[in-house]
Write a protein that binds this DNA or RNA. Structure first.
Lengths: 196, 196
DNA sequence: TCGATCGCGTACCGAACGGTACGCGACTGG
DNA sequence: CCAGTCGCGTACCGTTCGGTACGCGATCGA
């Protein structure tokens, strides 16, 4: 929900909060600009004055949703300096925690990628950048562990987090959370024991 | 693409093939019925005579897409009778193979769930049923392995397949395929060695 | 006090959506 | 030869989509 500190009018602020809530609950394409405007109690032109278009609003939303995940690497580094294993656990735990939010509907970034299949679409471009950035940071972190192929392990961990987020919306968040921590533990053990 | 053997008019047949292709390439919501009709060279009423509505067409599509995955359990059972480990490998390999199809855009069922967030929507209902059925069959299969908690392993495997399908569309199918086989191997080993 | 500026909402736009009324033309049984 | 049926496409329906022209009212500097 962090909004990059953009200065905005009161009406624009209500639009932003409403859009975040509606997008989170129903996805982006399912929500029309008229619905956002009505729900937030402002006219549509106010929406278009503060955000140039629905696409721009969607990009801002998706970027804002990614902030916490990306920053979790910095948070972990500061909380457990010199302990990459603890940092990794923190990053994974953050995903597990997020899955516990009521009405969790899966990773917003991944979902948005599905909603915008055209890779040239500005929203999709932003999504792909964010996913690549996450994998980059994860790989960087895993590289500090004593494993032979950190890139492979990082990719596998990303897959697991992605899968946990996805299954959480089909079955129960509890099972996905439990399976995520359990499986990442086993996998990391497997990579660590192979080459200490 | 198997179509449950429904008998259909020539026009309806062209509609069906076109719809499958367009849905696969661009998703369901991105494709309008007019586009399907025009691309297949038939009028819209032909579409509505053969399929009652776009939703019905989408349900048929999503069911058809799920057939191969669900049948892979039967195929595996016949190919490797009495060898649940080989059967499991076959089921997982099928997912890896599917990920290799050009223009792969992730699991159709999972993607459709994102496109229809409303759990009461008929398309979403069908999707949820199919996912539950897949997990049911997977759990049944894993239960034949000598592991303590087959339900947990099955859930983890489903998570992995889901994650591999999802990451394949962000990064490369090759990495996801490799990571899927590698990670499932390690995970199954981990569960088998714990309690032979 | 007046005039310019600014944020705002009403009312509207063309396009695209899912879905349908209706009439044409080709077969088929008598 | 003809009447009924069946599959089909043209042309249209109302609704909703994202986006905009425009005028109102409050605020603020002179």
């Amino acid at each position: 929900m962090a909004d990059e500190g953009r200065t905005r009018s009161p009406a624009g602020d209500r639009v932003w909060r409403t859009a975040c809530e509606l997008f989170s609950r129903e996805g982006i394409r399912s929500v029309g600009v008229a619905e956002i405007a009505e729900t937030s109690g402002v006219g549509k032109p106010s929406l278009y004055r503060n955000f140039g278009s629905k696409d721009d609003l969607a990009v801002a939303y998706v970027r804002a949703q990614a902030v916490e995940g990306l920053e979790s690497f910095d948070v972990a580094r500061k909380a457990f300096p010199g302990d990459p294993m603890a940092q990794l656990r923190h990053v994974i735990a953050r995903v597990a925690t997020e899955m516990g939010t009521p009405g969790y509907r899966g990773c917003v970034i991944a979902n948005t990628a599905i909603e915008f299949p055209d890779r040239a679409h500005p929203v999709r471009v932003a999504v792909d950048e964010l996913k690549a950035e996450y994998l980059r940071r994860l790989t960087e972190l895993v590289s500090q562990l004593p494993v032979r192929d950190p890139g492979e392990l990082a990719y596998a961990l990303q897959m697991l987090m992605e899968g946990a987020s996805a299954t959480a919306q089909f079955f129960t968040t509890e099972r996905s959370r439990a399976a995520l921590t359990e499986t990442t533990d086993r996998l990391i053990d497997s990579y660590l024991s192979a080459e200490g």
